[in-house]
Design a protein around this nucleic acid. Sequence first.
DNA 1: TCAAAAGTGTTAATAGTACACCCATGA
DNA 2: TCATGGGTGTACTATTAACACTTTTGA
Lengths: 213, 213
Amino acid sequence: MTNYSSYPRFLVSVDCVVFGFEDGKLKVLTHKRPYEPGEGELSLIGGFVERDENLEMAARRLLLNFTGLDDVYIQQIAAFGDVERDPGERVISIVYSVLINIKWYDEELAQKYNAEWINVDELPQLCFDHNEMVEKARKILGESIKETPVAGYLLPRYFTISNLQSLHEAVLRQEIDKRNFRRSLSEKSYIHATNLIDKMSSRRGATLYEFDL
Amino acid sequence: MTNYSSYPRFLVSVDCVVFGFEDGKLKVLTHKRPYEPGEGELSLIGGFVERDENLEMAARRLLLNFTGLDDVYIQQIAAFGDVERDPGERVISIVYSVLINIKWYDEELAQKYNAEWINVDELPQLCFDHNEMVEKARKILGESIKETPVAGYLLPRYFTISNLQSLHEAVLRQEIDKRNFRRSLSEKSYIHATNLIDKMSSRRGATLYEFDL
DNA sequence: TCAAAAGTGTTAATAGTACACCCATGA
DNA sequence: TCATGGGTGTACTATTAACACTTTTGA
């Protein structure tokens, strides 16, 4: 027997900052909240934790539901628990950063949920404290992308160095020298050139690379 | 009106990894759980979040209660939410790292709560997932201590470079060269020498330093 | 033939690491 | 006078930053 009974219980939600990369821009997946409070306002992908699932499972369930994707990269960012953060009822929210290949995203589901990819540098006001969640997630993404192969989750399997560089530039909000960037990559063990050539993006053709994940 | 009503509610707790520094060792504050489940097992400082307080306030309330200290340094580490993590009932726990000056800790309270400071490198098994919490908090402390003045919260107001170095060594679990350490400090803007001398720790006397917090 | 993106090296500056001796003092 | 911890500088290595031209090819 526990003596837990006298303590309050709370709704616990998971909110996902879903990042995608397209046209040289880092984007975040949003949708219009379909119910009150905040109906019609822009929101991250979120939902409540159920009894039989842990926090990460809840995030994965919501993502599968919303994007059609399983097996995405997710990482916990923080817990948000201000008393008044959700005007409907007190909700404690656990935030996850999620990286997906925007091309695999299910367009039909997008329509169904009023979903929209928004450039992270041009985000309007989102509901509740969701802007703050995006900021935190982006900061952590910036730290990860320099050290780890997480960029692989935002790009297609094969990609050019230019693609990868423009992703880094979008995440870090700074220009990077091409030669220094290529050299730093050549020192990473988790990325390698394939013998494939991309003829789409240039006349000359660019070597396609691949992450070892 | 919300449509939140059909979702489950959970107990939400805050667990604090309270770090202190004494005798050249990084220590964590533990106590014996006074009730089931896990009665008698070693536990971090924790408790349930109340309706009218946010997560950080809950942590501060628990700390004041348990250590007699307000105005401590606290930083959120992560949320732990595995379904079975607490065998009594499902509890979602938000973990905070807390840095205090071990000398200010209230010994009477310590007795009352069966509290004990344990060397972080010699921690026995703690209840539930508390060891994992300590590991995460310690990892983050290691990153912070190199870049920021957080060491100031673990030391007395005035301290010698030797003190500070031994703290860094305890946190990072590695020896540091004395000359390099002193040089790196001289490049930090947030620490400065006072004109006070500590005559306790050596015959010659050592300059006392102070953080600008 | 030329526009457009791919690819390529060198130098300078900075940060980090390794290392050994003298100093001041109280007991 | 000597044991103890305080305090100091230099050379080497590794990392990061700055910088410009040639290559390939389809239109």
